[in-house]
Computed example of a mutant assay.
Amino acid sequence: MNWGDVESALGTSLPASYKSHSEMFGWGEFGNFIEVFSASLEPESGSIVGECRRRQDWADVDDEFASMYAPFELFPSPSGLLIWGAMERGGSLFWETSGEDPNKWPIVAVTEDDRKFSYQMEVSEFIFKCISGGVGPFFVRGEVRSFTPIYSYE
């Protein structure tokens, strides 16, 4: 993966844990519950660059869409939410891009009914906790603990 190109397209560095995770797994789903977007420049759904741009474009023209993230704004606003994944029932996973060190950005999970939960942990830890017992309201139902690759742009 060419991280320089991806980070340049986003306008920011990304957390090291996301990079490691992406290099190991690529784009895919854990337990049919958490989708981690690809580190791709492709504009298609499932690309961190494409999803970030798509949400910002919606927020630019739809105040109601933008307001569902309040009190946050979307990246590239300072401390804005930068999307990195999605959840089975319509939730979204972001980093709050506060501070200069992306390795310290908290994860913000936004549920399908617009509730927000903040977690000071890395992507892999968040996923592991969801599939091994739960993080707040986020947990994989049943014993499904698998990874399913979706597609590779490479």
Rank of each mutant, 00 (worst) to 15 (best):
Ile131Asn: 04
Phe94Lys: 01
Phe139Asn: 02
Trp84Pro: 07
Ile107Phe: 09
Leu14Arg: 02
Ser22Glu: 09
Leu14Val: 04
Tyr153Asp: 15
Val49Arg: 01
Leu14Thr: 03
Ile83Lys: 04
Asp101Arg: 02
Glu42Leu: 07
Ser17Pro: 04
Ile127His: 04
Ala39Phe: 02
Gln120Trp: 12
Ile127Ser: 07
Leu41Tyr: 09
Phe25Leu: 08
Met121Ala: 07
Glu88Asn: 10
Tyr69Cys: 05
Gly133Asp: 00
Ser152Tyr: 06
Ser40Gly: 09
Glu96Ser: 09
Gly134Arg: 00
Trp95Arg: 09
Glu35Ala: 15
Phe37Glu: 15
Ile150Ser: 15
Ser13Phe: 08
Phe30Ser: 10
Phe139Met: 02
Pro102Ala: 03
Thr97Tyr: 05
Phe37Gly: 15
Phe128Thr: 00
Ile48Tyr: 05
Ile107Arg: 02
His21Thr: 12
Gly142Trp: 05
Ser45Thr: 12
Glu35Trp: 06
Val140Cys: 12
Asn103Arg: 01
Phe30Pro: 08
Ser20Thr: 13
Ala16Met: 07
Tyr18Arg: 04
Ile34Asn: 01
Val36Cys: 10
Thr111Gln: 04
Ala16His: 08
Glu88Pro: 01
Tyr151Gly: 07
Met68Gly: 13
Gly91Ser: 05
Ser98Asp: 11
Ser132Asp: 10
Arg141Gln: 12
Thr12Ser: 12
Thr12Lys: 08
Glu112His: 10
Cys130Trp: 03
Pro137Asp: 03
Trp105Ala: 06
Ile48Trp: 01
Glu42Asn: 11
Asp63Gly: 06
Glu7Trp: 00
Gly142Val: 01
His21Phe: 15
Glu44Tyr: 11
Val49Asp: 14
Met24Phe: 14
Asn103Ile: 06
Pro78Gly: 09
Glu23Gly: 13
Pro71Thr: 05
Trp27Val: 10
Gly133Trp: 01
His21Gln: 13
Arg145Tyr: 03
Glu100Met: 10
Val36Ala: 09
Glu29Asn: 11
Met24Trp: 10
Met24Glu: 14
Arg53Gln: 10
Pro15Gly: 00
Glu122Leu: 13
Val144Lys: 13
Gly28Leu: 04
Met87Lys: 04
Met87Ser: 14
Gly80Met: 10
Gly26Lys: 02
Phe37Tyr: 14
Ile48Val: 15
Val110Ala: 11
Asn103Thr: 06
Leu81Gly: 06
Ser47Ile: 00
Cys130Leu: 07
Leu74Trp: 06
Leu81Phe: 05
Val135Cys: 12
Asp114Ser: 12
Asn32Phe: 12
Glu96Gly: 05
Thr97Gly: 12
Ser79Met: 11
Arg145Pro: 03
Pro78Ala: 14
